[in-house]
Design a protein around this nucleic acid. Sequence first.
DNA 1: CTGTTAGCGCGTTCAT
DNA 2: ATGAACGCGCTAACAG
Lengths: 280, 280
Amino acid sequence: MTVTVREVAAAAGVSVGTVSNVLNRPEAVSTGVRTRVREAMATLGFVPNSTARQLRVGRSQMVAYIVADTANPFYTDVAKGIEEEIGTHDLPLFLCDSNGDPSREQTYLTLLEQQRVRGVLITPTNPRAPLLEELPRHGIPVVVVDHTTDPRMHCSVAVDDVRGGQLAVAHLLDAGHERIAFIGGPPSTSQVRARRQGALNALHAANIPASHLIEIETTAHTATEGRGAAERLTGIPPTARPTAAFCANDLLALGVLQHCVSTGVRVPDDLVLHLGTLTR
Amino acid sequence: MTVTVREVAAAAGVSVGTVSNVLNRPEAVSTGVRTRVREAMATLGFVPNSTARQLRVGRSQMVAYIVADTANPFYTDVAKGIEEEIGTHDLPLFLCDSNGDPSREQTYLTLLEQQRVRGVLITPTNPRAPLLEELPRHGIPVVVVDHTTDPRMHCSVAVDDVRGGQLAVAHLLDAGHERIAFIGGPPSTSQVRARRQGALNALHAANIPASHLIEIETTAHTATEGRGAAERLTGIPPTARPTAAFCANDLLALGVLQHCVSTGVRVPDDLVLHLGTLTR
DNA sequence: CTGTTAGCGCGTTCAT
DNA sequence: ATGAACGCGCTAACAG
């Protein structure tokens, strides 16, 4: 069923070493032999077994990016950027969805380590997973995305969430709003905590009491949760209701918008909503 | 650097066959030896090399789903469903983004074939790619998602787009709308063609001329394109402007909504917009 | 129940 | 420029 280099070699009347050479160092083979071997590969339907190559070479060419939720456009946008870059090195990217579950995250990490992959990028659900440190020790580079970690162990790239939250809320304050909703995911996520802190900083800088930040907590970064948050928000008596909302996540903002549209809340007359990076 | 079964065997005072057995058929090894071997693995930091295992067994356990755009929530929702199912068989899923590029799609297919993966799911950008038929011939199961193909070659699962388009537009007609926008992606995608056909069917069934379906074509299924479409839509003189819009894709609908919100077009007073499956 | 051994398909010396 | 032979780490078949 499966065609090997040996069979190709026999068909082309050369040795396996030569076949391997036309595969990996074509310039080291004479033109005539090269085309003869290539024809043999084509007629036999030869498909290189990269498993065998990897075993020989010691590692696979695969790069993986583990995220908590592939439905979150932030992650897929980051993934597109990663692909663009590593594509220039002819490396393929594979996306893994841990679904916010530390045990699934660990399963993927284990799997990837056993596969001897070329590298792993991860936006960790469990930033203190022991495997996160084990991989680099075993020679597998790890890049932590959207989360800061111990720089001695990993490279990492992250957003200044405090500043982001501060800018967003300062903008709303400038526009004259005095009661602002903060719609944020579970406080267990550091990004949410940081953006909230930024929001508070903005209030403080404007001499507005922190109580004017009306916090609505959600359990996840999904549109469904956003709709629920909007429901709670619009349930607040008009005089106490925030006039603007800052959402810690695009999908939350989308859900808020969906709820407003379907229940007749005017945007932006009744509620000011700034859509962030959901721009693709 | 890398620990092998042989070293584990030596450390535990057993043979490699036994080590392999505790890995793959633990019940066939006596309890004492089993724990002794497991301890040796732990202290040595043994990580099974699944590349070698795959070479021996003939195929990898990896399942991949190739989509045209991981930023399209439809695909990631499908991916979640796939994961849920294959997870019950202890198989990991890897997402591949072809970015709508047939050549990248082909690259992934080639790679996966060379990796001898367990199976491939794909929403094809190029449904007639020769590799799509070659994989099954080489023993790699392929499932075509959201696209119908020759049932002799592949299993496939797809949506009845014609009926979907018909239902959506019939609903708007029932609500009293007589001029309806059809905002659809490139007509080269069969899903868009089918939904458009369904929309026309609904008009025909209601004895409304096809010219009352105002078609706005986009080049992709993105929010950006949706915003552009909305701009064109709101540029139509009020008397001729559609009073409702049917978007062939959620991201387009989102873009339309974004444009309306940012330019003060009332939803649904000025324009009725139904948000579809964007529900997570 | 445990040990021994023969490849899985390929890349890479070292000869020629 | 080409060929022969070895081994990557592991599983499976068989022998004990």
